[in-house]
Design a protein around this nucleic acid. Structure first.
Lengths: 148, 148
DNA sequence: GTACCTGCAAAACCTTTGCAGCATC
DNA sequence: GATGCTGCAAAGGTTTTGCAGGTAC
């Protein structure tokens, strides 16, 4: 229940942000956001198109273009994660995840660490003159199942 | 001079490791390692194939397969860096770089930070049961030139 | 001599775009 | 009604693989 409400809150927030920033409120957009919000971890374009509720709603090209727009408006984040394909994850204000990836089976876990990198961010900005900094941190290794 | 010697030392180390771990000492391998060692930052497969000394030496498919083997033997590292193509960088023991990427012009800088993440690594291993952990940390933002 | 490595070429994948029609505002 | 969004289909890039021949050991 609390879960359910949480999803709803996030969805409302995300749609509102998108509207404010000029996007139209389409069914495909809402469904894509819902899937990303409920996902356990980051998903690829292929993953997303494999979700029936979404593929019934719209085409792959549309999902692709939506991902670009949603990222631009700041409600989702694009991740590298060492794989060939790009991953996308919902980005709620004040939440930041780092990721733990198994290099053998490809499993991805989100870690909500008390991340010491945030302090570094300011330092790097000052030293390099870069602005609007954010970071991506991933740990790679072998998960217990793969080590056997 | 010191630079030169440094390159040489690294090359010798890398070739030795590769030999020990079962790879053959080919010209292509040595040239690829030399290019990666002398590179200022991480390079893509395309970048590498654009280097004349290397493209004269071997085919793109060979570079691709070499990159896989070198990574497997632990002398180079594969990076995501948010781009479509994978990046590769030389990995000398005890050295670790984090990266600063301009999201506007794509410029990549290596940062040799006193990285607080190394401490976290052990913690994550203990909590998750993952083994052989390493990490990748990237900062993204706009460089001074792009902000104008 | 054997096992591994290479070149060439083609296949496989993921991403990106053009254009005509449709939905949202 | 105007503008932005969608579907379909095709193009663009990067990565990956098969196979016959060459090379390191």
């Amino acid at each position: 229940m609390a879960e359910e409400k949480n999803t709803q809150e996030r969805l409302v927030w995300a749609v509102a942000v998108c509207r404010e920033r000029g996007l139209r409120r389409t069914k495909a957009m809402k469904e894509l956001l819902r899937v990303l919000i409920e996902a356990k971890g980051p998903l690829t374009l292929s993953d997303l198109c494999g979700v029936q509720s979404l593929s019934e709603q719209c085409d792959k090209a549309t999902v692709f273009r939506l991902l670009g727009r949603l990222q631009e408006k700041g409600v989702i984040r694009r991740l590298g994660l060492h794989e060939r394909a790009a991953y996308y994850a919902f980005a709620y204000p004040g939440e930041h995840f780092d990721y733990l990836v198994c290099t053998d089976c490809g499993k991805i876990e989100a870690l909500e660490l008390d991340c010491p990198v945030e302090v570094l961010e300011k330092e790097v900005m000052e030293q390099t003159g870069f602005s609007g900094l954010y970071h991506e941190l991933e740990f790679f290794g072998s998960c217990p199942q793969c080590v056997g």
